[in-house]
């Protein structure tokens, strides 16, 4: 392939374009990203690790991991079911269902949290029923779980649907004709086909659950050591001028983002090799 684009002579145009790209990305992405690490290690690694062992910080880590451990598997099951239902069937309102599935991305996280408060809060629809059985949802773990599940709901289905559509149902039908059960078909035929898309979907779900701020913030009440996730800890410590503590947690979350991007790269390369 020729590298030059014909109308734009091999001249200063590429240089200017690359220059603007790098400048813009630096201002918006690279400098802020680099700043996270620079601030966290400003006074060396010692204070950084000291912050990392602070009990409040450790509680936030524990809660964040616990949220992901529950919310991610639930959304995997839902995502696979929804992907199979949408990709393997033609029915009226299919496009509509796809749009509905995308709703959590369009709805502001704060509105998502507000809706949960209106449902499960003290004056909400289920408020009195929940109070009667002594279950606290809002300002407690279940509410945060629901909020995390809400905001990360579409990822798995969205990554898996295109792959299912591309591979078609032929192999699955062949397996069924040969006497495989539905479960066997899924395990031996469908799952290997969608594995990379599924992996990326899971990684995205996990990143969103662990990093979610708005929706969780509304329903958590941000009670230190009890309903504080890492993301909430970042904001809380920043507001209390504990900038170093905030940046220590930020580094951890930034590493999570980097891991997410690395997995994405790997998945993309593997799918190109397969295809």
């Amino acid at each position: 392939m020729k590298k030059t684009t014909a109308p734009l002579k091999k001249s200063w145009v590429p240089t200017i374009f690359i220059g603007i790209t790098l400048l813009y990305l630096s201002l918006i992405v690279y400098i802020p990203a680099f700043n996270v690490f620079a601030q966290a290690f400003r006074k060396g690694a010692g204070p950084f690790f000291e912050n990392m062992t602070h009990p409040v910080f450790l509680d936030a880590v524990r809660l964040t991991v616990l949220l992901a451990l529950i919310a991610v598997p639930i959304n995997i099951v839902f995502g696979l079911c929804a992907a199979w239902a949408i990709a393997r069937h033609k029915f009226p309102g299919r496009a509509f269902l796809l749009s509905v599935l995308d709703l959590p991305f369009s709805i502001s996280p704060v509105v998502a949290g507000l809706m949960l408060v209106l449902l499960y809060g003290r004056n909400g629809w289920f408020g009195s029923a929940l109070e009667a059985v002594n279950i606290k949802v809002i300002f407690a773990f279940p509410g945060m779980l629901l909020a995390s599940m809400f905001v990360s709901m579409p990822f798995v289905a969205r990554e898996v649907i295109p792959i299912l559509e591309e591979t078609g149902a032929d192999q699955e039908e062949a397996a069924k004709t040969l006497g495989a059960s539905e479960w066997q078909t899924f395990w031996h035929i469908t799952l290997p086909n969608i594995r990379f898309g599924l992996l990326y979907g899971v990684i995205l779900t996990n990143a969103r659950v662990m990093g979610e701020f708005g929706a969780v913030s509304v329903v958590s009440g941000n009670i230190t050591r009890r309903t504080q996730t890492l993301s909430l800890y970042v904001e809380d410590t920043y507001r209390e001028y504990l900038t170093e503590a905030a940046y220590s947690a930020a580094v951890l979350l930034a590493c999570l983002a980097v891991v997410t991007l690395v997995v994405k790269e790997i998945v993309e390369r593997r799918t190109h090799q397969d295809g």
């Binding site: 990143a207 662990m210 970042v234 930020a250 980097v258």
Partner: peptide, 24 residues
């Protein structure tokens, strides 16, 4: 690397983005 980094705003938790943008 530059191509992959375009997705960073999508992957970086928003509170971290707010924190570092407020500083920078």
């Amino acid at each position: 690397i530059i191509e992959a980094s375009v997705d960073l705003p999508f992957a970086l938790p928003t509170s971290v983005a707010g924190l570092t943008l407020a500083t920078v």
